[in-house]
């Protein structure tokens, strides 16, 4: 490790000690060890560390992961709702890391951050998509159905998640479309008439949700920690909201990370409905498949704009605008309108 990196680790260790001291007032003899960066995400920088402290005469230990907001990126979402949802879901049967501490303003660790308990497992999703990983992938997909069913049947009102923006079965789709379209208008670097047309289609064909549930918002391979065929934790809750659960199901089946080779969407949906009691209407299914292509398009355009504006120097997202062509083609391929399809 270079001297500069060692200094950064030393400073951050001290900052984390201060954070723990502030959030656990009874804590004494706080130690932060084994602090090291994990592979960075595009919106959160992750650090792993071990914490040890004495509290009322008892020694406490925790393996921890700190997620600290990146400078700017593809998503700019507040940390507090994300942290509070993770905290509230503890003990509900949804596999989730334990929420420990939050620094919402970056008072202690320079940028907004929160700390979760470290969970065993890997998030390596390319391994699940390779032919040799098919058996494990099938098991993970089976568990993913169960996780989806559990998440979407949690009584979110009883958990006190009323701080999430309210919605209804009639307005859930409209609210999401409005949100993502507003980001599009803010971050686009050219008119993008095809995207304008896509949002119009989405506004003109909104489905009614069967019910309102917690929607993870980024529910997919890559955002879960698994060991063998079991999912130990669902990660990356920054897009969590209340809405139509079908949004999560269709997001999981986007081409980039889809488990379709081991479990076709139809089977996933059938199992899901059986487990959750939530019917999945064909119109909602196709609608959210289309919506999600737009959602990912806007995420990518936002990342490209952040880099172009110099608000982030993360090269990984620099060229994300070039990825949207295939999402838009997918949108057209799935567009159900017969009069349009006939012309294509």
């Amino acid at each position: 490790m270079s001297t500069g990196a060692a200094n950064a680790v030393s400073i951050l260790s001290e900052q984390l000690r201060e954070l723990i001291r502030a959030q656990v007032p009874a804590a004494q003899n706080i130690e932060v060890t084994n602090l090291s960066p994990l592979t960075a995400g595009n919106t959160r920088n992750a650090w792993s560390f071990d914490a040890r402290w004495d509290e009322n005469g008892i020694t406490q230990t925790a393996g921890c992961v700190m997620l600290r907001k990146a400078e700017a990126g593809q998503l700019e979402t507040p940390l507090i709702p994300e942290f509070e949802v993770i905290r509230a879901l503890g003990g509900t049967g949804v596999p989730i890391p334990r929420a420990l501490w939050i620094d919402p303003e970056g008072k202690w660790v320079e940028r907004p951050a929160f700390v979760l308990e470290r969970v065993a497992g890997t998030s390596d999703f390319p391994a699940l998509l390779r032919p040799e990983g098919a058996a494990i992938s099938r098991g993970v997909a089976e568990h993913l159905v169960e996780v989806a069913a559990r998440l979407h049947t949690v009584d979110w009102q009883a958990l006190g998640l009323g701080f999430l923006p309210a919605t209804s079965v009639k307005t859930a789709a409209a609210q999401q479309v409005e949100y993502w379209e507003s980001l599009f208008r803010r971050h686009r670097m050219e008119p993008h008439p095809m995207i304008v047309g896509a949002f119009i289609w989405l506004k003109e064909h909104q489905p009614v949700a069967d019910r309102i549930t917690i929607v993870h918002g980024d529910f997919r391979y890559g955002n879960l920690l698994y060991e063998g065929k079991r999912i130990n934790a669902l990660l990356d809750w920054e897009m969590v909201h209340l809405g139509d659960p079908v949004e999560d199901l269709t997001w999981a089946y986007r081409a980039l990370w889809s488990p379709a080779s081991v479990m076709p969407l139809e089977e996933f949906v059938e199992r899901y409905s059986k487990l959750s009691g939530i019917p999945v209407h064909p119109h909602n299914l196709i609608y959210y498949r289309l919506f999600n292509e737009m959602k990912h398009t806007i995420i990518s355009l936002t990342g490209a704009k952040s880099f172009n504006d110099g608000r982030t120097r993360n090269i990984v997202i620099a060229d994300r605008a070039a990825t949207v062509t295939s999402y838009l083609i997918q949108f057209l391929d799935w567009l159900p309108e017969p009069r349009v399809r006939a012309a294509l």
């Binding site: 008439p193 095809m194 567009l335 349009v340």
Partner: peptide
């Protein structure tokens, strides 16, 4: 609409 979507393609 038909013209536009064919153009987009």
């Amino acid at each position: 609409s038909v013209e536009l979507y064919a153009l987009f393609r």
